[in-house]
């Protein structure tokens, strides 16, 4: 696999960071809010003073104006594990550039965002089962591990999101943001896997990668279609009506996927491989409230 990421691309990512929708309990101070109040960096609220409170948290300015003793409350900010689940089944080889290449670059970029925000980031490649994971850690040393792993990955095998999600849950010790990157082009069920992630307390984000020629196929004539995962073959004479039927069937598949994700409150993003990656991150993910 070609060089995954370069300096210029990282520079353009700027000061973006992930946004967690729910507060997490963090072990250390990160930039994500923790429900535990106390000494932290971010002011949260006031409450009446009760004996025993630390005088350092009494807001004397308010006492001077209101003649009431109020104690400042702070949100404790903590780090958040970010799990990147990367589909590397054979179907990701399709496209120019391939969906796998696009997904790899995206994974690297998101990993960089997380690590730069002092979050722990882990990489979990999967096909029909979970591959060799890189457990979440923080620090730029982890970035080197992730890049090295990404460079050595090749798309192979079939896809099973359900089984991969089940195995992932058994590996992850704590809940976090789960970025699920896949083409979701599988006839198998994926709803169960998505449900497992949510029930485990994760905050999944679904990013679907598709090649433009998968959305709007071109080329007419007699075809022998080969499933890159199962190697099954179908002979077909493709004309305009055939393509229209395909597009209709694909739209139905995507509608079903979006419904499944919506029901589980999982944000969904579609990335075509002809869309520049930086544009997808800056516009699509930012607009979707995943990063800020």
């Amino acid at each position: 696999m070609e060089r995954v990421i370069d300096e210029e691309f990282l520079r353009r990512l700027g000061n973006l960071r992930f946004i967690a929708r729910r507060r997490r309990k963090g072990d250390i101070f990160g930039v994500h809010p923790s429900p535990r109040s106390g000494m932290s960096l971010e002011f949260a609220d006031y409450r009446p003073y009760t004996p025993g409170d630390d005088f350092r948290y009494v807001d004397w300015n308010v006492y001077g104006r209101l003649d009431r003793i109020l104690v400042k409350r702070f949100s404790r900010e903590s780090d958040l594990p970010i799990y990147i689940l990367l589909d590397l089944s054979s179907s990701m080889r399709i496209g120019t550039p391939s969906k796998a290449s696009y997904a790899t670059h995206l994974s690297a970029a998101l990993a960089y965002l997380g690590l730069r925000s002092l979050d722990r980031v882990g990489l979990y490649p999967f096909t029909d089962r979970l591959g060799r994971p890189i457990p979440p850690r923080h620090g730029m040393g982890q970035m080197a591990h992730i890049l090295s792993a990404l460079a050595g990955l090749e798309p192979v095998g079939e896809t099973s999101i359900d089984r991969a999600a089940a195995e992932f849950n058994s590996h992850s010790r704590e809940s976090g943001i789960v970025v699920l990157i896949s083409d979701f082009l599988t006839a198998d069920s994926y709803e169960e896997g998505l449900g497992r992630l949510v029930h485990r307390g994760h905050e999944p984000i679904a990013i679907q990668i598709l090649a433009p020629e998968e959305v709007h196929p071109s080329g007419l004539g007699r075809m022998q279609l080969i499933d890159v995962e199962t190697k099954q073959r179908v002979r077909l004479t493709v004309d305009r009506s055939t393509i229209a039927s395909y597009e209709k069937r694909l739209e139905e598949h995507l509608r079903r996927l979006r419904r499944a994700l919506f029901e589980r409150r999982i944000p969904y993003f579609l990335a075509l491989t002809d869309l520049p990656l930086s544009r997808f991150i800056h516009e699509e993910l930012r607009r979707g409230g995943v990063i800020e």
Binding site: D183, L185, E229
Partner: peptide, 18 residues
């Protein structure tokens, strides 16, 4: 006859051949 690799066949199977 042209050969073409696709991500999955379930979207193509059963389509009316042109």
């Amino acid at each position: 006859t042209g050969r073409r690799e696709v991500a999955t066949l379930f979207l193509w199977k059963g389509l009316h051949s042109g």
